[in-house]
Design a protein around this nucleic acid. Sequence first.
DNA 1: ACCGTTAAGGAACGATTGTTCTTGACTAAT
DNA 2: ATTAGTCAAGAACAATCGTTCCTTAACGGT
Lengths: 187, 187
Amino acid sequence: MGRPRGFDETEVIAAAAALFANRAYDGVSVDDLVTHLGVHRNSLYKTFGSKRGLYLAALRWHVKHQVQPLISEVGAARDIDEAVRGTLAAHNDDVGALDLLLMAATERAPVDEEVRTEVSAALHALDRAVSTVLTGTTSDNGDQPAPALAEALTSALIGLRLRARATASPTESDLAGAALARHLGPA
Amino acid sequence: MGRPRGFDETEVIAAAAALFANRAYDGVSVDDLVTHLGVHRNSLYKTFGSKRGLYLAALRWHVKHQVQPLISEVGAARDIDEAVRGTLAAHNDDVGALDLLLMAATERAPVDEEVRTEVSAALHALDRAVSTVLTGTTSDNGDQPAPALAEALTSALIGLRLRARATASPTESDLAGAALARHLGPA
DNA sequence: ACCGTTAAGGAACGATTGTTCTTGACTAAT
DNA sequence: ATTAGTCAAGAACAATCGTTCCTTAACGGT
C-alpha cells in the first residue's frame, strides 16, 4: 500500500553510477544527484539512506551490469589478443564499462573499506577471466598458470583505460593494447 | 623588506602533494591544508592564489621531484625486467612516487584541462624512457621500436600501482610486475 | 468514506566549503 | 624614529555541503 514510486530505482542507480564515474565522490553533491537523477531529496534518502549508500549501490550495480559483461567477454576469448581487443572495443560501445571501478579504486578504496572490498572482488574476478584465457594459450612452456601474470594483465587493462580517460585519446589505447597483446599472445 | 616568511614554500608544496595524493581534490579541504601544512590561510592564498593554484603547484612539484627520478631510473635500466622491478621497488622506498599523478589522471584530468596537459606530458615522458629500454632489448625481430608497446607498458606500470593502492597489498604487485617483465623481457 | 502507509514537494537545519577582510606583528630602508 | 611593505593570526563572508522536518498527495485495505 502507500503511494507508488514515481521513479525507477534501477534507472536512478545507473544514472548515479554515470555521475560518480566522471567526478570524484566528493565532487558529486547531493544537489547534483537530485538534479540529474530526477529523484527528490527525500526519496533519495528514504531509498538509499545516505549519499554513501547510493554510492555503494551504484558501485555494486556498475560491477554487476557493466564490469561483469566485460569479464564474460574476456573469459570467452580464445586468446589474449582477442581478450584485449574485445575489452577495449567494449569501451567504445558502452562508455564507462570500467570507469566507476577505476574511480573507486583510486579515490575511494584507500579511504572506504567497503569500497575496497568491492573493488578487490571485481579485480579478482577479472583476474580469473584473464587467467582462463592465459592458461588456454600458455602452451609453449611448463610454467605455472601464472596468476601473477593474470594480475599484471588486468592491471594493464585498467591502466590503458585510465590513460585513455586522462589524455582523452581513445585511439592511442587501442594501438597500445594491440601492441601489448601482440607481444604477450605468441609468447 | 617586509616580514620574512615563517614557512618553506617547497616544504608546503610537498606536504600538499602528499595530501592530494591520498584523497581526491574535493576531498581535501582548505582547512585540512592549513592544519597539516602549518601555513596560515592568508599566506596560502597570498602565495598560491587559490586552492587550485596550490594543487597545480603540488602536481608540478610531484612530476618534477617524484616522477622524474623514477623516469630516470627506468631510462637507465638495461632491460625491461630491471625497469619494472626498479619502478616497483622505488615505490617501497619513496611511497607515493606515482600516486599524485595517478590520482590526478583519474580524477582531475577529465575535468581540468591544465591538469590534463600536465598529466599527458608526464606520461609521455615515461613512455620515452620505457621506449628507450624497449629498443635496446627488442633484438629478436625487425618490428618498429613500438611506441605503442611503450605506452602499453607505461599503462601497465600505472595499473600495477593503482592496484597496489586499491587493494592495499603491495607484495602482489611485485609478483605481477615480475611476471609481466618475465614475459616481455625475453620476448 | 475513512484509515494507515508511503512517496513527493519544499523549506530548513547546522556544519563546512573556498575565499576575503581586518588587525597587529615583524623587518629593511629612510 | 618613522615609514613602507610583507606576513601572521583569526574572525567573518556568502555559498554550498549532507541531512532532516513538515506538509501534502496518492495509493490499498477495512
